[in-house]
Simulated assay, not measured.
Amino acid sequence: MFDLNTIKKRYFEIKMGEQILELEPPSKKMLTKVTALSNIKDGKKATDGLYEAVEMILNKNSANKKISEDTVADLNLDQVSGIVTAYFEWLKQTKDSKN
């Protein structure tokens, strides 16, 4: 019998101020939603979608720590964009790795 519980979990570590979060890989449902939010082209909707995507990413953490909408709203656009870019790069690297 194949036991899913034996699969080693992987986490993306991110430091925000003094806090370190271990972010989990997304489920298919979350990945679809984050990708859709990140790809909106209409000005304000694109910005709102990017911030919403980051909030979803940050809230899928190993400690189940709730990151508030206000905390994410306090990040500047460069920080938000950096989080999304680094997270997706990590997903690609871990997907491409042999282990």
Rank of each mutant, 00 (worst) to 15 (best):
D42A: 12
N39E: 15
V72Q: 00
S27P: 06
K44A: 14
K29Y: 12
V80P: 03
I40T: 14
K44E: 13
L23F: 02
S97T: 13
M1L: 10
K28W: 04
G82W: 01
I67C: 03
K44I: 11
P26Y: 01
T47R: 12
A46W: 10
R10A: 03
S27W: 02
N61K: 02
G43I: 11
F12R: 10
T94F: 00
L4T: 07
L21V: 04
D78A: 14
K15P: 06
I57V: 15
G49L: 04
L23D: 08
M30C: 07
Q19M: 04
F12N: 08
R10K: 14
K29N: 11
N5H: 04
M56I: 13
F12K: 11
K9M: 05
Q19P: 05
L50K: 15
N99T: 12
S27D: 03
M16S: 07
N59S: 00
D42N: 14
G17K: 01
A36G: 07
L91H: 04
P26D: 06
D70W: 10
W90I: 00
N99I: 14
Q93S: 12
K15T: 15
E69V: 08
K15F: 00
T35H: 11
T6N: 11
Y11P: 06
F88T: 01
K29V: 14
N76Q: 06
E24S: 13
K60L: 10
K45P: 05
N59R: 01
A86Q: 13
A86R: 14
G17V: 04
L23Q: 03
D3K: 07
D78M: 13
E69M: 09
K98H: 11
S38A: 13
L21T: 05
D48H: 10
L21R: 10
K98Q: 13
D70T: 12
I67P: 01
W90G: 01
K95I: 07
G49M: 04
E22K: 14
N39V: 06
D96F: 02
E52Q: 15
R10N: 11
A86G: 07
T47H: 11
F2K: 10
E89D: 13
I83G: 02
N99P: 04
D74G: 12
V80I: 09
K66R: 10
E89W: 05
G82P: 08
D70G: 04
D74S: 15
D96A: 03
R10P: 05
L4K: 11
Q79G: 05
Y87W: 09
A53M: 01
N39M: 05
Y87I: 04
D78T: 14
A46P: 09
Q79T: 09
K8V: 13
L37K: 06
L75F: 11
L37S: 02
L58F: 03
A63Q: 15
M1S: 11
I67H: 03
V80E: 05
S27C: 03
D42R: 07
N64W: 08
F2T: 10
V72A: 00
D78C: 06
G82F: 07
I67A: 00
D96L: 07
